[in-house]
Amino acid sequence: MYCISDQQIDFILADLHRKGIQIEGLQSNLLDHICILIEENLEEDGDFEQFYFTTIKTFYQQELREIEEEALFLLQFQHHLRFSRNQFFLLLFTIFIGPFIAGDLLWLINSVDSNGWNLPFEIWGATVVYSLFPLLILLVLFLTPERQDPLIPKKSTILLGIKPFIKIIPARA
């Protein structure tokens, strides 16, 4: 069983800090976890630094700070509703345009009762235009190239809640 020295503990702590782990509780947990892995798996005459750098790489996908970002994310946005980009636009249209289209259709149906299907062109025209308007916007949104869509990038996640009301998280590269 490998025995970790105080200098090696300082080395790990400094590296965790340098790699973006600032929250003390997270640092303690990661330090203890790494120390146990080293003590249990490294030979007494093994290469500490090499083993450490190999082990720490297994903790993350791209950068170690992902762990801290995830912790902050869970804390800050745990009461927010999470939507995909498609769900978010669907929600927007349902809230803002849905009632208008529903009202327009109801009005159309009521007009049919009194006038039959022989309705003035303006009524049909308005219904068709207003019904297709959301579809047109959706087409523009989904066919716009990535570089021209900086506000809500494709594959991003949208969080709705209180403080902040809305948060857009772009997809990781």
Partner: peptide, 11 residues
């Protein structure tokens, strides 16, 4: 994974 466990414990 460590990346999933520790943020969850923190939360």
């Amino acid at each position: 994974t460590e990346g999933a466990l520790y943020p969850t414990l923190h939360a």
